[in-house]
């Protein structure tokens, strides 16, 4: 084990991982060597950041341009009452620092835009989309798909969640939804409300997908089945999980046979995120 450079404290801290054949010291080393970018430090980002930090993901990028509001605290459990008014990336980074000294946090206090997304993604192996608006979601899909960066997607609405992963090139989010709905048509959490624990469930599934991807990338967990090619619909009210296929669309504007989008600069990420929107 010494050749994997896990020190005695790490062997203890991660012993419940290391003891499993599907993780072992190699898998833990892969987690410690992984660079993961979490987009959004809100309801989804909170459990994602917490579990990835606890798992020992060595470098966590956290991107968010919001400050903590009191109305966030019902679900955004990485922030505390005293954090109201502070940048979310700051309190999230502090949480990680207190939880696990093995994890380095890159706090990106910025809104992800077409102008900075490529540079932001370039430093990471895997992206977790826990953002809170369609513009960012379509931008993240397009940028990750074009750059070949695997990512997992989670989104919430009142009592419902949608979770999927795109790690094998095809399909992508636009195969399922070619364009976003017009602004305001499907209300966000501030307009529609959201069950506080809902993003906990959805974010934990996204964190699970991330850890499994890292293990599989290291040649481990051969039986692991990810959410590639399928989307989970979680209904907290009915307490049901439904699993539907996500099929590659030959007409997809990003990953189809004759894609119209070859760069995020081809799209205006406003309103419906259409090509050449004006």
């Amino acid at each position: 084990m010494s050749d994997l450079n896990l020190d005695p404290t790490q062997l203890d801290r991660y012993s419940r991982h290391i003891i499993m054949d599907d993780v072992g010291p190699e898998g833990q080393k892969a987690l410690l060597d992984a660079d993961v970018l979490v987009l959004g430090a809100g309801g989804l980002g909170s459990p994602i950041v917490q579990y990835l930090a606890a798992a020992g993901v060595g470098r966590l990028g956290i991107a968010d341009d919001d400050v903590v509001e009191r109305s966030n605290l019902q679900r955004q459990i990485v922030h505390a009452d005293a954090d109201v008014g502070r940048p979310k990336v700051e309190s999230a980074a502090e949480f990680v620092a207190e939880l696990n000294p093995d994890v380095t946090v890159d706090a990106h206090e910025t809104r992800v835009t077409a102008d900075n997304v490529d540079e932001l993604l370039a430093d990471y192996d895997f992206v977790v989309d826990g953002s809170d608006n369609f513009e960012t979601r379509f931008l993240v899909n397009d940028a990750c798909t074009l750059a070949g960066v695997p990512f997992t997607h989670g989104a919430i609405y009142r009592f419902e969640g949608q979770i999927t992963s795109f790690t094998e090139g095809q399909p992508c989010y636009r195969c399922l939804f070619p364009e976003a709905p017009p602004a305001g048509e499907i209300p966000d959490c501030s307009e529609a409300g959201v069950l506080g624990v809902l993003p906990g469930t959805v974010g934990c599934i996204q964190a699970t997908e991330t850890v499994k991807w890292i293990l599989q990338d290291a040649g481990l967990a051969p039986e692991a089945d990810t959410l590639d090619g399928r989307m989970i619909f979680y209904d907290a009210m009915a307490m049901t999980f439904e699993d539907v296929p996500v099929q590659p669309d030959p007409d997809c504007p990003v990953c189809g046979d004759d894609p119209a989008i070859s760069s995020v600069q081809d799209v205006e990420y406003v309103e419906t995120c259409a090509i050449g929107a004006d």
């Binding site: 989804l44 809170d132 989670g154 966000d188």
Partner: peptide
Amino acid sequence: ALFPPVSGG
């Protein structure tokens, strides 16, 4: 089934 995307986070 009939469904829209959702965006909350």
